[in-house]
Design a protein around this nucleic acid. Sequence first.
RNA 1: GGGGACGUAGCUCAGUUGGAUAGAGCGUCCGCCUCCUAAGCGGAAGGUCGGCAGUUCGAAUCUGCCCGUCCCUACCA
Length: 650
Amino acid sequence: MTLFHILERRLQQAVSRHLSERYGVEIPVAVEQPKQSSFGELALPIAFQLAKQLRQPPKKIAEQLAGELSPIPGVARIEVAGNGYLNVRFDRGGYAGGLLSGEREVSAPKSGKIIVEHTNINPNKAAHIGHLRNAVLGDTFVRMLRSAGHSVEVQNYIDNTGVQVADVVAAFHYLEHKSAAEVRELIEIERFDYYCWDLYARISQHYKDNAEALAWRQETLHSIESGEGDIAEIGHLVADAIVRAHLATMLRLGIYYDVLPRESEILHLKFWARAFELLKERQAIYFETGGKNKGCWVMPGAAFSEQAGEEDSKVIVRSNGTVTYVGKDIAYQLWKFGLLGRDFRYRRWMVYPNGHEVWVSTSEASQAGAPPFGRGSYVYNVIDSRQSYLQDVVVAGLRALGFSEQAGRSIHFSYEMVTLTPATCVELGIELTDEDRRRPYVEVSGRKGQGVKADDLIGRLIADACQEVDSRHPQAPEPERRRVAAQIAIGALRFFLLKYTRNAVIAFDFQEALSFEGETGPYVQYAAVRARNILRKLAERGEPLPDFNRELSAGAMARQLASEDFWQLLLEASRAEVALERALASGEPAHMAKYAFQLAQAFNTFYHDYHVLAEENRERRTVLLWMTHYFHAQLERTLEVMGIDVPEYM
RNA sequence: GGGGACGUAGCUCAGUUGGAUAGAGCGUCCGCCUCCUAAGCGGAAGGUCGGCAGUUCGAAUCUGCCCGUCCCUACCA
């Protein structure tokens, strides 16, 4: 627990005790952040809450409380403001001293494992901007959880036997008349994920023009499921190659996975068969004997929706005996909690450059060294909001099986889709109707090959950043400039995807996404770079960083922090953990982005107003140096949670 | 028809459990590099928080009704 929290809690307890002793009331003491920083560090609206009970005006109660509360360590004074607010001001010198000495309470290590499933891209074509939102949200949430001390397992589900893969496989076989060997060769010589992007658009169009060709899809699905023959072989080749491409794209963004559970193993290792038994046994589903779902196994609508009637039952097993996606998802969700009574086998998929290993499910014997995957105590599924109905069905399945605790711990971490602005559509050559042109955003079709490919976008961002870096640092070696440009590009991209709250539809616009000014990743990175430049300059002058603990007395801190400007920056920097906790509690990575931006803003103002190295007063200079150092550490830590690097220079 | 999300400045969006004078970025206009990097800083203009009613000492926030936009409502995933 950080110093800020310690003070907050101390205040709550003191006020709570006083209320109980003086007035005999037991109510939770709300503590808020004042509207304006000039009001102090914390505010208590307690007098408003008490006004009714005590039949006295809030202001009078506030005055009584302010006068009667016994001193609280760390709190300088409590003032009455407005109609009855109690504004609390910290003892600045003491607070700074606490930060300097690292005063905090160690929180107990969290038990249990949290599983976060994200990315989940169909392995049939290149990743696009919408997939990036999923992965960046998921990855940032994972980093937030880990930063708070949780143990987290990252799963990326691979639907390698679904319709989307089958369509591309069918295209290779029926449209292009390619053998598995030829596809294998293509993978070597082509930008394969891009190739499939276009091929998928081609076969989608072909199906549209020749409805009878849809028979290819069924044929292909059958071949893939049987696992025998050339078509099945193409299926493996396509899915594996595309997964490799996706992981490479995500690695550019600093996104890693622990395990890739695949649909093929859900089928081959009879996960579904087992789940089916359970569902039948506990009567979570029933065999429909009449109506539109005759011959299907269905889950009654009442299980997942209060308003649902007979009509709204969800088909789990089709009348031809095949299982729907939701059925497989129920089996998968059961496995995640260790409730299925079956496990995958695993083999190493790849080792990342940093040594981290990612494993993949297999139906062969397990390779040695596989970590114990699954058996999570909480499961977060990062899936777009359009699928909330299906996620509800999955959770209802768990509940119907009697696993209500796990059902409650199944969290659909939903987010809205990414669309394109009309201007960006025009830039991409996508035809628009007059109606579309007037809309703020347009949802485009991946089936038609429309959209912004992730690697294209990253490439453009890097090119733009490179231009800036080149013009500012022409003397720096080329590979280094390139690395810095990539860090800036990724910073811009991740920040862009994180600054919107989850339920905001993002209207992607090239002009906006390629901006490096204002509320952007590079703005925040720049503030960190500026702070580091000051410290580096100091070192270049042959001056070591002062021993702050020895040089800065409580008195010196108090004297210098009497300056409102200094105090506000220090306070804001000290709230990094508060921001993290708030973001975690609300499940909003956007709060991290907001905080990072505000902190950067505070520092940029400070940087502009005070020349640290030129400061002649020794005590003040030392305080400014310490604040610069502390700010940098706090901002860097915050950016790290967002997966954003601080470049060496900008 | 049913379910869900949303409507806040010209544009894109924040807004904790209802609280003090509703915020930011972009855009527009006006300024600031002899000084640790101007990817920066300062200032100005810009609002009936979709509408109406209600609850409350107090509503952008809660409730109801209405208007508008989007998503879902497959034996696709």
